[in-house]
Structure formats: C-alpha cells, structure tokens
C-alpha cells in the first residue's frame, strides 16, 4: 500500500467547473515512500505538512489519500 509524507497542502474553495460540486476539497503534494512526489486529493481528516498519509482509493482515476492514525 502506497504511503507518503505531506510536502505541502491547500484547501480549494474556488474550483474549476469540473470540480464545482466537490468544494471545499484538500489537495496535497506528497513525497512517496520509496521516492517520487505527486499531487493527490485528501479524503477525511484535514492534513498538514509533515503528516503521514496512505492511499485510500481511486475515484474516476484520481488518487485519494488519508491521514494515518
């Protein structure tokens, strides 16, 4: 299971048309365990820089990660 650490994040309030129904939503750039940096969506609890997250699911080809407890 993919895990990573939050490098930076934001909560989007003003969306593009396509995501208009999903606001507010959290985006994060995460450093993946084993290397690589990707932009993902966060599900559930809000995360901050330095938090550890794990892959939750893929919805319409978009990877969602969640905070590890």
């Amino acid at each position: 299971m993919k895990r990573g650490v939050v490098y930076t994040e934001t909560i989007v309030h003003s969306p593009p048309e396509l995501f208009a129904r999903e606001v507010p939503y959290q985006l994060a750039i995460i450093d993946l365990e084993g290397g690589g940096r990707v932009t993902v969506r966060i599900a559930g609890e809000r995360v901050a820089i330095g938090d550890t997250v794990k892959w939750l699911e893929s919805r319409n080809g978009i990877d969602f990660f969640e905070k590890t407890s």
């Binding site: 930076t8 934001t10 989007v12 593009p16 820089i49």
Partner: peptide, 15 residues
C-alpha cells in the same frame, strides 16, 4: 486531480 492556479500558489505559500 483538481489543482487550480490559486491552489498551486497556495501550496507554495504553505511551504
């Protein structure tokens, strides 16, 4: 995945 220009600069600001 849903990034906008304000959100990219918001992430720059956070960092």
């Amino acid at each position: 995945v849903g990034a906008t220009f304000p959100s990219l600069f918001a992430m720059i600001a956070r960092r």
